[in-house]
């Protein structure tokens, strides 16, 4: 089961979105998030929803993958929606009374409140879909490369951009190795009578100690070996380093940026001129 673990969620495909520059995609995601927080009502959300649908179509990702990315969110979604319909009354102009839908005992539901709860849930859904589009369409290498390049200006304030990107890529390289090792240790300890499955949370947490100690010892040994191997291969930090993968902006990125700007403009303008709740 550990053999076919995938790194991150990357889903390889040959598409417009996959071919976009990871730096641009990261920036566009941030712009997109700002946009959906600027959208003040459901109508203003239309450009954001259209943008996500367009991006999803252009990425040629299977729809079920995108839906699946919402799955961990289902409890939060239901929970916030239910709480919100009870507590929200909608942002009504001064002096205007909300339209009651249900008024019984301590429960006061209003049409405006329900709409607003819908808006909040939609915001969460669109937010997660947008981020999933980035991680599904960008390989971990491209993602770390993109992050490194974006963080480079921060080197002025001595921010270790290269080092952080290097650590991220080494972590990605060793996640499957360490998982496999954890599996091996677990089996070895089980063979000696260790019990990882029964007992309450406290007992199970305690049972992890004989798994974690050898895992850490081995991870440190690996780190020592790796540092030696990297030094033997002339690694001496980011200075004077060239790279195999060079990121290039293309016309695709321009189109992407234009679409994102249009979307944000749409969200802001509609929020400004259309007041429904």
């Amino acid at each position: 089961m550990l053999a076919d673990i995938t790194l991150g969620q990357f889903y390889p495909a040959d598409s417009f979105v996959h071919k976009m520059d990871p730096r641009v995609k990261i920036v566009l995601l941030i712009v997109f998030i700002v946009g959906i927080f600027l959208a003040k009502n459901l109508i203003a959300f239309i450009p954001a929803v259209l943008f996500v649908i367009l991006a999803a179509r252009m990425s040629r990702l299977p729809v079920r993958l995108l839906i699946r990315s919402l799955k961990p969110l289902r409890f939060i979604l239901i929970f916030t929606f239910i709480l919100n319909i009870f507590f929200l009354q909608g942002n009504l102009p001064e002096g205007q009374e909300p339209t009651p839908v249900l008024d019984w005992w301590i429960i006061h539901l209003t049409a405006e409140g329900i709409l607003q709860a819908l808006l909040y849930s939609l915001r969460l859904i669109v937010l997660v879909l947008g981020s999933s589009l980035l991680t599904l369409s960008t390989s971990p290498i491209a993602l770390t490369d993109g992050l490194e390049m974006l963080m480079t200006p921060l080197k002025v304030i001595r921010f270790p951009a290269h080092e952080i990107a290097m650590m991220m890529s080494i972590a990605l390289r060793f996640i499957p190795t360490l998982l496999e090792e954890a599996d091996k240790i677990m089996k070895a300890q089980t063979a000696r009578g260790a019990d990882f499955e029964s007992g309450n949370i406290l007992k199970r947490a305690k049972a992890m100690i004989p798994l974690l100690v050898p895992l850490f010892v081995s991870a440190f040994r690996r780190a020592g070996d790796l540092a030696m191997a990297m030094e033997a291969r002339c690694y001496h930090g980011g200075e004077g380093r060239t790279r195999l993968r060079v990121l290039k902006c293309t016309w695709r990125d321009l189109w992407g940026a234009a679409a994102a700007v249009l979307m944000v403009a749409g969200c802001v303008l509609i929020s400004e001129f259309v007041h429904i709740i």
Binding site: P140, I141, S169, R173, R222, L226, A229, M230, R233
Partner: peptide, 8 residues
């Protein structure tokens, strides 16, 4: 395992 750095 301890001398390969990259994921590809």
């Amino acid at each position: 395992d301890n001398q390969l750095v990259a994921t590809v």
